[in-house]
């Protein structure tokens, strides 16, 4: 028996909106510690890891570990039927081939339940070791989204370079080139507008903008995004999900031919 009640149901709507274009089908893993997901995009270039810790739910009952295979587009369709301020409850029986999403309005005058068929998904689970990064950039998520969107009108790839001077996003295409430099800005008055750069060593990596743009669908979840870089390793783009967890996108770099 699984029963997860999330008062901030809008968070789950935003999580699905940020996943559904990158991943078609995925297993949600439910255990005593939380509700999580790990999935790759269909071309195995990017990976997403989601964790919503059990403490973040108003009620969290998970009698035994369960894996719920869901089509994320269909799940997003169902969650779109919830209002942003609805309380969302996810329910499933151990042997059931379906999951129920219950939506309650904050004043309890409307209660809806949507039942969705589960799928058997044969997915590969990857072990991601804890890594020390050469550079970690924390910046406003809206600013990062704007940069990715702007650069993708010029080129297909972005070179992210971190130096003492700041973080530089560069692209080149048929019509020309573009460079955007963001300098460190502690923004003490408005911490959500801060850009903080922790650099052990300068680093420069190239990534496909198509995937970066897809990751920025998570922008409504968090004011800040963290971009962690190390030479010859995938970049990690992380958005915090309120106080309860995170959504992390991993993207393999491009290398010169």
């Amino acid at each position: 028996m699984l029963e997860l009640r999330l008062v901030q149901g809008g968070l789950l709507k935003k999580v699905l909106e940020s996943l559904k274009d990158l991943v078609n089908d995925a297993n949600f893993d439910c255990s005593a510690s939380g509700f999580s997901l790990q999935a790759m995009d269909s071309s195995h270039v990017a990976l997403v890891a989601l964790l919503l810790r059990s403490e973040g739910f108003e009620h969290y009952r998970c009698d035994r570990n369960l894996s719920l295979g869901m089509n994320l587009n269909n799940m997003a369709k169902m969650l779109k039927c919830a209002a942003n301020d609805d309380i969302v409850t996810i329910k499933a029986d151990d042997a059931s081939d379906s999951v129920t999403f219950m939506f309650e309005s904050p004043n309890q005058d409307k209660i809806a339940d949507f039942e969705m068929k589960l799928m058997d998904i044969d997915s590969e689970h990857l072990g991601i070791p804890e890594a020390e990064f050469q550079a970690i950039v924390r910046m406003p998520s809206a600013e990062f989204a704007r940069i990715c969107k702007d650069l993708s009108t010029i080129g297909d790839t972005v070179v992210i370079s971190v130096t003492k001077e700041g973080v530089k996003f560069s692209t080149r295409g048929d019509i020309g080139t573009a460079n955007i430099v963001c300098r460190q800005n502690p923004s003490i008055d408005k911490p959500e507008e801060a850009t903080i750069i922790e650099m052990e060593e300068p680093v420069s990596l190239t990534f496909a903008l198509r995937y970066m743009n897809s990751f920025t669908k998570a922008t409504p979840l968090a004011n800040q995004v963290t971009i962690s870089l190390s030479a010859d390793l995938p970049v990690v783009v992380e958005y915090r999900v309120a106080e309860m967890g995170y959504i992390r996108f991993y993207l393999a770099p491009k290398i010169e031919e």
Binding site: M40, S43, H44, V45, A46, L47, E124, H125, L126, G127, I128, P129, D156, T157, T206, A208, L233, P234, Y250, L251, A252, P253, K254, I255, E256, E257
Partner: peptide, 14 residues
Amino acid sequence: TGIQLNITEFYRST
């Protein structure tokens, strides 16, 4: 431009 690496080249199956 460039060769796109796969994520599975970096992380092992568990």
